[in-house]
Design a protein around this nucleic acid. Structure first.
Lengths: 155, 155
DNA sequence: TTTCTTATTGAGACAGCGTCTCAATTCGCC
DNA sequence: GGCGAATTGAGACGCTGTCTCAATAAGAAA
């Protein structure tokens, strides 16, 4: 947490911004959740702890944290935007199950390297590389198979 | 167009649905645009041609077309969801420039193969593999460099 | 420490994209 | 042609995120 606070304060100062209680609170909150969370849930969690920060401020500061690279913003679909703090160097991607909505993380260095290579080839300077896989997870696949092979059974 | 109509009608019948004028119209419209387009723009284009189809119907049928695999739904960010028809077998991905908003397509078979491999390893059955790169395109990069090397000049 | 400037905040109105509702219409099987 | 069900149209609605603007507070300067 020390590192992140320091990095954030550094960024804040460098950009002529000001460090506030609300900013510290959002930073601490997002770093206390070790998994994806959406802005409104985070906001609710903060209020639940008695932290009186407005919704707009949570949104504003999550975006600020995303800008300075401490937080990653990840859009699943129209109704789900997740934020997660960067756990040093662990760039990962997501598989989203269409049926149960479960999000599975995976890390693959080769995939990243290849994406960077493609960007280079197109003279494109990437800020964010995202691989998003939408499909059906192993659990739902099994459930579906079970239903399929034993439908509303015989006479 | 024959193939797509046939495929669509086949899907429609297989799922106990009905083929309607609105469905045919949406199918024809999306296949007449050989690039990404959003639902509202498509709707406007249809009305412009005198096709009297409601917004809700366009949304509904674009989703239906996406379900049956004839159309791909691609989300850039909160405010941009693009649809594009599948041009047989040409699975591609997108790079979006953060500055000018330009969308560059690229195709890379290795990248796809690798994603599929990862899915297999996780027992995940992919419906849609998306690689989304957000960054800065070569044009904007040059523009930025030009500004950077010759800022509001000397005293 | 007090003062002063200005970034930030809070509350809620607002915006945009989709979705939902439900009566009216249309499909397509008989 | 007639019937039952799927589909449509029009607009209200919902949700996430942004904007507004007065009030507040950070932090530099005195």
């Amino acid at each position: 947490m020390y590192q992140e606070t320091a990095a954030f304060e550094h960024y804040i100062r460098d950009h002529g911004l000001r460090m506030t209680n609300a900013r510290r609170a959002v930073l601490e909150e997002i770093f206390s959740h070790h998994e994806h969370i959406d802005a409104d849930r985070l906001h609710a969690a903060m209020r639940g702890k008695g932290l009186d920060v407005s919704r707009a401020t949570v949104y504003r500061n999550l975006d600020l944290l995303a800008d300075c690279g401490l937080v990653r913003k990840y859009r699943l679909d129209r109704h789900r935007v997740l934020y997660e703090h960067m756990h040093a160097g662990m760039e990962h991607d997501h598989m989203v199950c269409r049926e149960c909505g479960r999000v599975v993380e995976f890390v693959n260095r080769d995939l990243r390297a290849q994406q960077e290579e493609i960007c280079r080839a197109h003279g494109f300077d990437p800020d964010d590389l995202t691989v998003q896989v939408v499909g059906c997870c192993i659990t739902c696949k099994k459930a579906r198979a079970a239903r399929g092979s034993a439908p509303p059974s015989g006479p």
